[in-house]
């Protein structure tokens, strides 16, 4: 049961706007006829995601999202688009004819997920809104977690990045 004091109008309105924006941009990513438009739509989705992280009081991740995703990854994508000389204008060859299969699969997946989520977390509330323990995620806490209990995964990840860097160079260089 939802108490009046639990309803935070400002946040909810914010969420609604962000979510709507993300969904529209998401449709743009998967349906745009133009590669550059799709890539720019993805920027909007990511920015929306970052805004969501702020709503969820995860500022550090939000900032990282902006820096790494919107800053670095998207530039990479645009490079990729340019280097592969994809047409910047409309391109009818962008999609294959799998929509007949893909649409039912995606809808079924969403149906199952939505059903399970609604059933499983019917009106669970986010702690940040209930008043107890509502504190922003401290960056110091995150760094303590990364460098103490999650040190090994962190190392593993460093190796993944190293391997990816070397692999990308090996794959893409011209001999």
């Amino acid at each position: 049961m939802v108490l009046a004091s639990d309803i935070q109008v400002a946040q909810n309105v914010g969420f609604a706007i962000i979510a709507l924006m993300m969904i529209i941009a998401g449709v743009g990513v998967i349906a745009a006829r133009n590669v550059v438009h799709a890539a720019l739509s993805l920027v909007v989705v990511m920015a929306g995601a970052a805004a969501n992280y702020v709503l969820l009081s995860a500022e550090f991740v939000a900032v990282t999202q902006v820096l790494v995703y919107i800053g670095a990854v998207m530039v990479l994508f645009l490079f990729g688009v340019m280097l592969t000389r994809a047409q910047v204008g409309k391109d009818a060859e962008l999609n294959n004819k799998n929509a007949v299969v893909a649409a039912p699969v995606a809808l079924l997946l969403f149906g199952v997920l939505a059903y399970v989520l609604l059933k499983g977390f019917s009106d669970d509330k986010i702690a940040a809104t209930t008043g107890n323990g509502a504190k922003p995620q401290d960056t110091a806490v995150i760094s303590d977690l990364i460098f103490k209990p999650y040190l090994l995964p962190f190392w593993a990840l460093s190796f993944v990045l190293l391997a990816a860097v070397i692999g990308a160079i090996v794959l893409a260089r011209k001999d």
Partner: peptide, 11 residues
């Protein structure tokens, strides 16, 4: 498509 479809049906 087969993979995701099978996963969805399994779920």
């Amino acid at each position: 498509a087969l993979l995701f479809g099978a996963a969805a049906v399994g779920a």
